[in-house]
Design a protein around this nucleic acid. Structure first.
Lengths: 345, 345
DNA sequence: CTGAAAGCGCTAACAT
DNA sequence: ATGTTAGCGCTTTCAG
């Protein structure tokens, strides 16, 4: 079945294509009767204009690309939802590109999104979370952001300025640690994440600083890295529990790690939070699914996506916007933390 | 900054655009030296061909639309991942369109995807899960599937045949109920989902049939509908627990409902599984996060996405494919079910 | 209010 | 091996 075009419509209506285009776009007045005729024919053939042709000439695609590591981690779908909901009514559609944090895949997608002429790009994870990112990977993003508005979410790249929106992860971690300290904990560990990853490093720094600020010492052997998964949480908690001296509370890099940590702790016969307090981070769906429910740090993932696309939209419209928008995280108290009742020797 | 085109490249290389096109696509031999020259210039300007123009003429966009209710429900990201991973290397990019199961939004996206000339569409949830879907909503899908390959995942539409891939939900539910029966349960309830939704109805039918087949009676008041959320699971379990006669085991429409059910049961002082066995469905990340871990039915969500796009791809290539591919679900035994030790009067 | 014609950036015959 | 040219389907001056 041959695809029908404005020409077919025009011919049948005995008008020129420009008239058809005018009723399609409402770009100029068209006589009521001819308009209705055209509309009828359009209806009859279920004609829909080819967005490619339109975009080719208008130089806008109403299309946004979102690059993120893993849609399977509940944090990211929330960001996506926030973004999509904010821009759906404006007619934007989203390319979802997942990278597993692999910079090769990031590069590929960056390139594809440019070819596809997306109006804007949202970038999360991967290289923008590396504590020191290779210059050529940075340059790639610099280059593309000269042509297409790019907003970095919860990350940054060295030696250049980008538009970005992020939650204050330092503050978030600080909130968590302080909460634990306020509950009387003095022996606190930190587990999960990857050393050299900004999300991890920032949180660990906040952890150390907050401990010091409260006059507490901490043990480096209680800062344990691995990855951001549930399995990492399990592995690292197991390590912790096999130590001679154990903390009475643990901060985790994210909710996933907390889940693993809690499961292992319970397997080892500990009660949470009575025998050990555990803090999550992200406030994903997991945190309210668990028993006990996770005390965690909310970074307002939905809001993050929403604000990011608002910035993108302003950029697309050539409006001025703040270079960096910071969202305040907040502590969400639930059941996995409680007053320290363990006496540590 | 003016966007550069094949013409710019051609001019600088002193060749015609077709030669540039040929090195871009490898569609015909080009002299080594001119090819290298062109490649150099391309590199120099970081030229990338405009995919819109290319697609306009080639009548293919290497683009797939996926329409689903809620990317925030862990089941869907898994399907998405399966699909993306299977087709990424082939150069396809995905539009993710979430609908909240709202048929208006489905219609909008269907229309948008057609305008954008996607090469194929994956459809999940919403209208294709309604036990009787309005004819015009069906017609819409029929119309679009005449123009664009469409694959329905875990659903169907009446009075027409579509390409579809689904897990055998009847079998899945049966597996779950039989598991409970084999554990000695005779008083079993079913909670969650929405009446009139095929996912729900099929499972409830399987539930009833399996009970009968085993010579067990069941109480209609133990079949409780509401929604697919954690909250529904809570509400419905609460209802169940306030009844004079309570079941010793409960099948839930999905993992979300199970989570809610378990949380409420525990709040009411029940131990899971000792005092009550609870079955999930979907085998999402939640099922291994919980304590106790959920016994659930896996429908191989990743596989589902993978197979769906394979069918799509075959359809795009004009190959023959089976109208309906059925994937076998399987029981995943974990910790939320056990031998019946409750004596019910 | 309407039409003619140019052109968005590319590919693909058809020549050479 | 390379150039010329005609579109793909649409929007948009510019005339009338």
């Amino acid at each position: 079945m041959q695809n029908i075009t404005v020409y077919d419509i025009a011919r049948e209506a005995n008008v020129s294509v420009s008239t058809v285009s005018r009723v399609l776009n409402g770009t100029a007045p068209v006589k009521e009767s001819t308009r209705n005729l055209i509309l009828e024919i359009i209806e009859k053939y279920q004609f829909q204009p080819n967005a490619l042709a339109r975009s080719l000439i208008k130089k806008e695609t109403k299309t946004i690309g979102i690059i993120l590591p893993d849609i399977t981690n509940p944090f990211f779908p929330e960001v996506f939802s926030g973004a999509e909901n904010a821009l759906r009514e404006a007619g934007y559609t989203f390319f979802l590109c997942t990278t597993a944090g692999d910079s090769r895949r990031e590069s590929e997608y960056l390139s594809i999104l440019r070819e596809r002429q997306v109006d804007g790009i949202l970038f999360l994870g991967g290289r923008i979370n590396r504590s020191n990112c290779e210059p050529d990977l940075v340059q790639e993003v610099v280059d593309i952001s000269k042509r297409i508005p790019v907003v970095l979410i919860n990350g940054d790249l060295p030696n250049h300025t980008f538009y970005r929106v992020s939650t204050d992860e330092y503050l978030g971690a600080q909130l968590g640690v302080q909460h634990l300290i306020d509950l009387g904990h003095e022996n606190i560990g930190f587990i999960g994440g990857r050393n050299g990853t900004s999300t991890t490093d920032v949180k660990v720094n906040a952890f150390r600083d907050t401990m010091r600020k409260n006059g507490l010492s901490f043990r480096e052997e209680w800062v344990l890295y691995d990855d951001f998964t549930i399995t990492s949480g399990k592995i690292l908690m197991e390590k912790l529990l096999n130590m001679y001296c154990k903390p009475s509370a643990v901060c985790c890099v994210n909710d996933f790690a907390s889940v693993g940590a809690i499961k292992t702790a319970i397997k080892y016969g500990l009660r949470i939070p009575e025998d050990m307090s555990i803090m999550g981070y992200d406030d994903t769906i997991l945190s309210t699914s668990m028993i006990p429910e996770l005390t965690t740090i909310s970074q307002n993932s939905v809001e993050l996506g929403k604000i990011a696309v608002e910035i993108l939209r302003a950029l697309i419209n050539g409006e001025e916007v703040a270079q960096h928008t910071i969202i305040q995280p907040k502590l969400v108290r639930r059941q996995s933390t409680s007053i320290n009742c363990v006496h540590h020797r």
